[in-house]
């Protein structure tokens, strides 16, 4: 017999509501593409166009000597886009599900989890653009292909964990403070410039220690660097990147889960 109120049977609860998780992911993806004429092609077109703009603008500034620059930009762009979309969706997951949460019992963490997962699915689909670019650069531009490509899954998983953790924190905050959304928007802009999406840190001469610190402290910096190492196959693997970003991501999930758990019973009174 199922007792809905007991907290102890977390696993049972999850097994029961895994269908809801699947439905949320399915729903988000379907609704996202339903009303657009280009449908799923947006997933490819959007990073492609934004990469095109960045490449066109930045390939001649900064004394740019970065090898395989279009791929370089695309890698950064895809990862940053995933992070910002997943965390923003996670942030809104509770407030948009208010109708359900107020009326029916559901384990609430299903919402940030489902919403970040649906972003993850679109992200994985959008990676096809990267694959197409890679094939072109390997065949015609002499980009090396190594087994490291398979390792690209590591930074991607770390990135997902990070996004889910931060999504839970933001979801909790946005229930109590509606203006968090605007603040986070500004924060994401800052984060974009602190992530080496279109620039290469090696080519920059950063004199300010604060900026340097901020760059290194940004987990996306490590994750993007790891991902590029795997895809483009140049440079060296840095274990610091791995341990720092993984540690950061896990810490965010723990903090997120604790904050979420502590406040979830109060959500209903505020949404």
């Amino acid at each position: 017999m199922i007792s809905r109120i007991k907290e102890s049977d977390f696993v049972k609860d999850f097994m029961k509501y895994r269908f809801l998780l699947a439905e949320i992911v399915r729903r988000n993806i379907k609704v996202q593409y339903r009303d657009s004429v280009l449908g799923i092609f947006w997933t490819f077109l959007q990073p492609l166009l934004s990469t095109f703009v960045l490449v066109a603008v930045f390939s001649n500034i900064f004394n740019n000597k970065t090898e395989f620059y279009p791929i370089y930009v695309l890698c950064g762009r895809l990862l940053y886009d995933f992070y910002s979309q997943a965390t923003k969706r996670g942030m809104r997951s509770i407030t948009t599900a208010a109708g359900v949460i107020k009326k029916v019992y559901v384990p609430k963490y299903i919402y940030p989890l489902g919403n970040t997962l649906s972003c993850f699915v679109t992200f994985v689909i959008s990676l096809l653009v990267l694959v197409a670019f890679m094939i072109y650069f390997i065949c015609f531009k002499g980009m090396p292909l190594t087994f490291n490509v398979l390792l690209a899954i590591v930074p991607v998983i770390i990135l997902y964990i990070l996004s889910f953790g931060i999504g839970m924190i933001l979801a909790t905050l946005s229930v109590f403070f509606k203006d968090i959304e605007y603040l986070y928007e500004v924060f994401c802009m800052l984060l974009f410039y602190l992530t080496p999406v279109f620039y290469n840190v090696k080519n920059l001469h950063i004199s300010s220690k604060v900026v340097k610190m901020a760059l290194m402290a940004n987990p996306l910096y490590s994750i993007v660097n790891m991902f590029r190492f795997c895809i483009i196959g140049i440079g060296e693997w840095n274990w610091n990147w791995f341990f720092y970003s993984l540690g950061f991501a896990i810490a965010m999930v723990i903090v997120g889960a604790l904050v979420f758990k502590a406040k979830e019973d109060k959500f209903i009174l505020h949404i």
């Binding site: 269908f19 439905e23 029916v104 559901v106």
Partner: peptide
């Protein structure tokens, strides 16, 4: 129908 069913904890 499927979404609502899942909200109530039923499988597809």
């Amino acid at each position: 129908i499927f979404l609502y069913g899942a909200t109530m904890g039923y499988s597809r």
